[in-house]
Design a protein around this nucleic acid. Structure first.
Lengths: 301, 301
DNA sequence: CGAACGGTATCGGATTTTTCGAAAACGGGC
DNA sequence: GCCCGTTTTCGAAAAATCCGATACCGTTCG
């Protein structure tokens, strides 16, 4: 049997009032219904959520934690039900969106078609460029909004930004690589193998930041601006690399397998997000775009 | 009748496979069950979610939108069910938390007791100070993490941060104020009335930023570092102010009523969030604290 | 020490909801 | 105009939920 919203609603009421019988009154159901709902929840989760006392019930640690989750779920449901009628049929206009390399290939495509069908009146005009060009275009007013790696953002004062997803960077290896069999893998181990360096989206610069915290340096054997090329070279055993899960695929174009491993050292995540000019209001079309992408990325951050 | 998780699950399956009958097979239920679930959903929401064609079903605009919400809900549920057993009973240690004025009075109390009971092994050591002092303490390693107004953060390179909640800033007015009856209210209107300026948490500096975008200036009649005092003075009709919803209460300490109105001009939100030193890993206790506060604030941002 | 009290757990029966399978209606494509 | 795959409809069967009464348990008070 599976969890249900009713169980969550009853549990929240019981937790908040501190008495099952009181919660039952507030919910306009019988006390036994609330008791049963909480018990079902406890059975499914395999945890005791409430401590039963003579004076009522109190939350256990796990109950406390689940209460937070439960409230989030109910909030998400309320948001979903909240006037789905006004689904922006009326919004029209053009939104000029700047994107960087990684974003245009690996992030935006998932959402683009969906946005177009949700908002037929809004035209998305895409513009791919390096980070600095996009920042300037935003400041000049040539772009309304940008989807980019916000961790690389420079003009933090003049541009507002928000993070949409965080993608973990991990070590990419060919199948049968010795590091796959090793217990722990750190940057010191990576430094002993040829390294394929990606050069787009300031990947080299980012890599420099976390390598700089160690005494080691990657032994770069090849630099390329193509992720497909990185995959092929790693799969062919010509080197290893560290890149984000967002651009990872288990197969190279030639069909050879790629493996992936967590690195012990602390490597920052790759943060994809939105940026726009801070001191001007977004156009209606841009605001719509922002809301949509936010919604589409919620709950997978 | 109310929405249920089953309906959402069935709808998502139908939307993804594009055929109700196919979705039914995947869900191991009959076609009619899926049909009924989608219809119930459509009835409750008052919107058509799927277009029925001879070849199957396609999402409407509203269906598209609801699909995103539905996925978020299911993700939230999955997260809630995911091993609630390991609810950090084992985590022990001390986390040194820096807070600024607004946070310590209006944000943290809600979560503090709850955190303490969820993680009895973790001691929270609180330290209230102005923003600049806290930033320095983070950099010095005297604090593990801080809860503060991240929009005011200065050391953006050395400190990592994330936003927890955004609180809208609105105009506070005494009951029966003429601006309450006016159609639209902008900063130009506010400038014509005496203004009570709060001086804590760089509120004055923040206010300066959005006033600077207009030709108007607030006619400051009084400056204070006490929010209670602001409330009392506004309630008594001695002036108006613009402050965030987080610190708003409908009554002053004397029991007089306060009203609140949206301002036409674009006023930035007050963003409460976490900050910590970027180049060192969080301690286990600090990580626990971070995860907890994130969870507690999800779905109300 | 025992009875009264306030609370939760349990149980059987009634009710509501959900599900199923078959048949009917629908819409394109040939 | 008919065929095919699909969705909708419908009544009966199954499942679940709910209720109310009762049993139970710990505290408090006489």
């Amino acid at each position: 049997m599976s969890i249900s919203l009713k169980q969550i609603r009853y549990f929240i009421a019981a937790a908040e009032s501190g008495r099952i019988s009181q919660a039952a009154v507030e919910l306009n159901v019988s006390q036994s219904a609330v008791t049963a709902a909480v018990q079902q929840l406890e059975t499914i989760l395999g945890v005791r959520l409430l401590e039963r006392h003579a004076a009522g019930v109190a939350l256990t640690r796990e109950g406390n934690r689940f209460l937070l989750h439960g409230r989030n779920i109910m909030a998400a449901v309320a948001e979903a039900v909240r006037e789905p009628r006004a689904a922006g049929a009326a919004v029209t206009g053009t939104v000029r969106v700047g994107v960087t390399y990684t974003v245009s290939g690996y992030f935006l495509p998932r959402h683009h078609a969906r946005f177009a069908s949700s908002f037929p009146g809004v035209t998305v005009s895409l513009f791919e460029a390096p980070r600095d060009v996009i920042e300037q275009a935003l400041l000049d007013g040539a772009l309304d909004i940008a989807v980019m790696l916000v961790s690389n953002l420079q003009a933090r004062d003049a541009l507002a930004s928000e993070t949409l997803i965080r993608s973990r960077r991990r070590l990419w290896l060919p199948a049968e690589h010795p590091l796959l069999r090793q217990g722990r893998v750190g940057l010191s181990d990576v430094a002993r193998h040829p390294y394929i360096m990606l050069t787009v989206d300031e990947a080299g610069h980012t890599a420099g930041r976390y390598w700089a915290l160690t005494p080691f340096r990657p032994e770069v054997s090849f630099r390329t601006s193509s992720v497909e090329s990185v995959r092929s070279m790693v799969a062919a055993g010509m080197g290893v690399t560290i890149l984000s899960d967002l651009v990872y695929r288990p197969w190279s174009l030639e069909g050879q397998r790629l493996e992936r491993r967590q690195v012990e050292d602390d490597i920052p995540t790759m943060d994809v997000g939105l940026a726009w000019r801070a001191d001007t209001e977004l156009t209606p079309a841009a605001r719509t775009f922002r809301e949509f992408v936010n919604l589409a990325c919620a709950g997978q951050g």
